[in-house]
Computed example of a mutant assay.
Amino acid sequence: MLLYGGGGHGIVLLSLLQATGEGVSGVFDERPASCLVRGIPIFQKYKPSIFPHESILVAVGDNVQRKRIHSFLRHPIGTAIHPSAVVDTSVMIGPGTVVMHGAIVQAQTILGKQVIVNTGSRVDHGCSIGDFVHLAPGSVLCGGVVVGDNTCIGAGSIIVPGIRIGKDCLVAAGAVVTKNVAHGAVVRGNPARLIRS
Rank of each mutant, 00 (worst) to 15 (best):
F72E: 15
H75F: 00
H75I: 04
H75N: 13
H75D: 10
G78I: 05
T79K: 05
I81D: 02
S84I: 09
S84V: 08
S84P: 10
A85F: 02
A85Y: 01
A85K: 04
V86P: 00
V87D: 02
V87K: 07
T89D: 15
V91Q: 07
M92G: 09
M92Q: 14
M92R: 14
I93S: 11
I93C: 08
G94K: 05
G94N: 07
P95F: 00
G96L: 01
T97A: 02
T97F: 00
V98F: 08
V99A: 04
M100A: 12
M100F: 10
A103V: 08
I104Y: 07
I104M: 13
I104K: 12
V105C: 09
Q106A: 15
Q106Y: 06
I110Q: 14
L111N: 09
G112D: 08
Q114D: 12
Q114M: 11
Q114T: 09
V117S: 08
T119S: 15
T119W: 02
G120E: 03
S121I: 03
R122Y: 13
R122E: 15
V123R: 05
H125R: 15
G126A: 12
S128F: 13
I129R: 01
I129G: 14
G130L: 10
G130M: 08
D131M: 02
D131G: 06
D131A: 06
F132H: 11
V133Q: 07
